[in-house]
């Protein structure tokens, strides 16, 4: 699994500890995560900013966003 995907998965597991059974792929959307909501978006934003040392816009982290889109965004140069 891509390193960035692993990091994102760990972030999601930190927010939703009982997530271990959910398979996270590039096509997984945030809405696929059970109980995904705007509060989770704020927590994931904080986590990703720490993990990737990059400003993450809130509008990136909505239900329809795929893991691939997050990976692409964090992979872009600042």
């Amino acid at each position: 699994m891509n390193g960035a995907v692993m990091t994102i998965k760990e972030g999601l597991q930190e927010i939703f500890p009982d997530l271990e059974d959910l398979e996270i792929t590039f096509d997984t959307t945030l809405a696929d995560v059970p109980d995904w909501d705007s509060m989770a978006a704020v927590n994931l934003q904080m986590y990703l900013q720490d993990a990737f040392q990059k400003e993450i816009p809130e509008e990136l982290l909505v239900g329809e966003t795929t893991i691939n889109e997050i990976v692409t965004f964090v992979g872009r140069p600042n």
Partner: peptide, 9 residues
């Protein structure tokens, strides 16, 4: 009303 996301998390 949203205790999981607004309190426990």
């Amino acid at each position: 009303l949203r205790s999981n996301s607004l309190i426990w998390r």
